[in-house]
Design a binder for these strands. Structure first.
Length: 493
RNA sequence: GGCGCCAUGGUGUAAUUGGUUAACACGCCGCCCUCUCAAGGCGGAGAGUUCGGGUUCGAUCCCCGAUGGCGCUACCA
């Protein structure tokens, strides 16, 4: 079952991302996927997507779809697959047969209940590791055959060789070794004929001719079990590269407790995929010399610079603030081509279509993007720039429009603007300041009040730039209706 | 408990693979600009490299130990 007919040059790396669909694509998995993708693209190798769904209890189709969605959002395309382990059961059974036939594995008739009982007893008696006692390993083959024939259910266990130790050279951690005495005779095939992870990974990794296994460091302890199988099967060992884990702010393993851990939830938060990718790439990896002081890397940069050597050994803490920073950097760097496309999705989700001419919309986006923290801002706090139906932030109204006199002045001001010939940034400012002088009031309150009346927000770009963008008609109309703005009401116009 | 791995400011990482005033970014603090700030500009604090021993003329870097954190310890993956 080990295909030796590899037509492709041995030098072409083949890697895989092998999530198990027992949950959504979480950030740790996403980074593993990213590293595999970067490695494949950097080396011109092949990325395979394999769904490890041999745990029928916990796997589901929605989770598979969720994982694919996350991959697509991050722009991580794969070359082969997705393959489903649930559809490759024959391969695993045959591999188990091979191991059985060569004496590297044996049938185990112990029931799950018995094992649990013994484990509990062991735990009580001493602090020794609860390992399988190998009692079925010594059953005479004829007797075993007889029991099998009698229909007694059995699992297949790997016979871990005595003596020595088993190790491997990890591309990240270096040489790692385990004493064989510490490795238990693990189950390859459950009594229902379904393989365990230990068997299916190895059978597939060999069958798919993988050259590099890039995965989370939580698999380090499993690796010797896999190395043993490669040896028993006479297969050549791939290069293992274990990637340190991502921890939450409290330095415990990232989990739901830490809030958003699903990749898709970041999309929903208005994070742009490139920012997320950039952020993830720098979590546990650094580009080589000459790029130490750089933070922003395009996908092409990352692909070009990526190497296994740059992966660090220690766990990294997920820092939301830094992700937020990457996001603002990307948003403000996007050109008038890309950003609007992303924003349109947000508008669609928010359920409205901007009515203004395209050039004005682009100009507004340009004006706003230095202040945007995420894509959603364009559909929420920036809504007044794209729609005549928008909310007034109650706090902003309370702060700058609570004074009735100011409102009255704004209405008067609207008349000045109605008479304006030009509507440039400079001209709108001249008009306002002249009006303030004549009215013997300070420009500040007028400016702040206008801002709220025009945008519904206390925070915005320079007021006159906003006016120039909004245009005369809108400015006049919104200022004129200043009197009717109510803090608690939400709609204008 | 056993086994394995890791350890540089709050966070992510650097430091010609033993010689640096230990660097950069995020965050934080302050100041400036100003019509607002979640914008921009400028500056600052913050680690003597977890701790203790070695080796060395000299250790962030090499060795040993301790401590701490994380992972694994299933007929889960």
């Amino acid at each position: 079952m080990i295909p030796q007919t590899d037509m492709s040059p041995a030098s072409t790396p083949r890697v895989r991302f092998a999530p198990s669909p027992t949950g959504y694509l979480h950030v740790g998995g996403a980074r593993t996927a990213l590293f595999n993708w970067l490695f494949a693209r950097h080396t011109g190798g092949t990325l395979i997507l394999r769904i490890e769904d041999t745990d029928f209890e916990r796997s589901s189709e929605e989770m598979v779809e969720g994982i694919l969605e996350g991959m697509r959002w991050l722009g991580l395309n794969w070359d082969e697959g997705p393959f489903f382990q649930s559809q490759r059961l024959d391969l695993y059974r045959q591999t188990a047969e091979t191991l059985l036939a060569s004496g590297h594995a044996y049938p185990c008739f112990c029931t799950k209940a018995e094992l649990e009982q013994r484990r509990a007893a062991q735990a009580v008696s001493a602090g020794c590791p609860p390992m399988y006692d190998r009692r079925c390993r010594t059953i005479d083959p004829p007797l075993a055959a007889q029991r099998k024939a009698a229909g007694e259910p059995f699992a297949v266990r790997f016979a871990v060789p005595d003596g020595r130790s088993t190790g491997f050279d990890d591309a990240v951690f270096g040489r790692i070794e385990f004493a064989n005495a510490e490795i238990e005779d693990f189950v390859l095939l459950r009594s229902d004929g379904i393989p365990t992870y230990h068997l299916s990974v190895v059978a597939d990794d060999i069958d798919m001719r993988l050259t590099h296994i890039i995965r989370g460091a939580d698999h380090i302890s499993n690796t010797p079990k896999q190395v043993l199988q490669y040896q028993a099967l006479g297969a050549t060992l791939p290069t293992f590269a274990h990637v340190p884990l991502i921890l939450g702010p409290d330095k415990t393993r990232l989990s739901k407790r830490h809030g958003a851990t699903s990749v898709i939830s970041y999309k929903e938060l208005g994070i742009v995929p490139e920012a997320f990718r950039n952020f993830l790439a720098l979590l546990g990896w650094t580009p080589g010399p000459g790029h130490k002081d750089r933070e922003i890397f395009s996908s092409d940069d990352l692909i070009q610079l990526f190497s296994l050597e740059g992966i660090s050994k220690s766990n990294a803490v997920f820092d939301n603030d830094k992700l937020a920073w990457f996001n603002t950097e990307y948003i403000r760097a996007y050109d008038a081509e890309k950003l609007p496309r992303l924003i349109e999705e947000e508008w669609a989700k928010a359920g409205f279509t901007p009515t203004r001419p395209r050039e004005e919309i682009l100009a507004a986006i340009d004006l706003l993007k230095p202040r945007a923290r995420n894509l959603k801002d364009f559909a929420t706090i920036f809504r007044a720039y794209f729609s005549d139906t928008f909310d007034y932030d109650p706090a902003a109204v309370a702060k700058f429009l609570s004074d009735g006199a100011v409102r009255a002045f704004l209405v008067q001001l609207s008349q000045r603007y109605a008479a304006a010939r030009e509507f440039t940034e400079a001209e709108t400012e001249t008009i306002l300041r002249a009006f303030a002088d004549e009215s013997r009031i300070k420009a500040g309150p007028l400016i702040n009040g206008s801002r709220v009346a025009l945008t519904g927000q206390a925070v915005a770009p320079s007021l006159f730039a906003v006016m120039a963008n909004l245009g005369k008609d809108r400015v006049v109309k919104r200022l004129a209706s200043s009197e009717s703005i109510k803090a608690e009401s939400s709609k204008a116009d």
